[in-house]
Design a protein around this nucleic acid. Sequence first.
DNA 1: ATCCTACAATGGACATTGTCTAAGTCAAGC
DNA 2: GCTTGACTTAGACAATGTCCATTGTAGGAT
Lengths: 138, 138
Amino acid sequence: MSDLLERLRGRGWRMTAQRRVVAEVLDGDHVHLTADEVHARAAERLPEISRATVYNTLGELVSLGEILEVSTDRRAKRYDPNAHRPHHHLVCARCGAIRDVHPTGNPLSDLPDSERFGFTISDVEVTYRGLCPPCAGA
Amino acid sequence: MSDLLERLRGRGWRMTAQRRVVAEVLDGDHVHLTADEVHARAAERLPEISRATVYNTLGELVSLGEILEVSTDRRAKRYDPNAHRPHHHLVCARCGAIRDVHPTGNPLSDLPDSERFGFTISDVEVTYRGLCPPCAGA
DNA sequence: ATCCTACAATGGACATTGTCTAAGTCAAGC
DNA sequence: GCTTGACTTAGACAATGTCCATTGTAGGAT
């Protein structure tokens, strides 16, 4: 168990059974669960937890910067607990598998001023798409 | 009017009033409409056009490679008629405005083999996020 | 230890986006 | 001008997410 719960408590986050369970479900590396998957896993431990609470809690954890929202497909948002190390994603176009990747270089420096249209850019998101070995081998 | 309709006809695409209207709505540069927006604009000219037809037609145009699907937010997919020149997107986090951009460099070469996990990578999508001048000025 | 109160959880309605199907309609070839 | 198979339609359905009024409770105050 990481210190996620401690960090949250230290920030004055009111601790409830529901919030604890959601945080515990997400507390692992290289996990990219949808809200529904989080709800399902949380419900294994706390059967009466509601979907709204899971959505609320996930939203709060995102606001607190403890997890990241990832939208690699146009289906459900996924939640990535690996929020403290910048990274991008590699997605299998067939089965949806997701891996965290760390490209070299900084895409920001690849965008000349003339292509920024006066925007204040705060974030760059890179998604590599392809086929994972099992799907490519088929 | 570009030659989009001619290209489609030449490929044996059966031409109907609905398809013509959808193609015409999309026939412009730097437009990034949602399916519903396409439907609304098409309905100005052809009031009885159905949502299903718009979805079907958009899907076909994507399959034909004439337009691109863009998922810059987790709301509706957007359709980009600028399918013949590779580009990425710059999105305003507040108002959702989208600009096509052309970064230098190739993000694919920034991903070492050790970070590819055996995937066969076919596509890279880069999304820059920030605030457009009006939203930043507020 | 008990009480208070603001904050959190619940559940169910609602919203948005997209898909599917059965039946009717029409473009294009003959 | 027919015929036919592809296209369109309307609306039901599905998946994901949001909202709200009500009920419950964590944590501080007494």
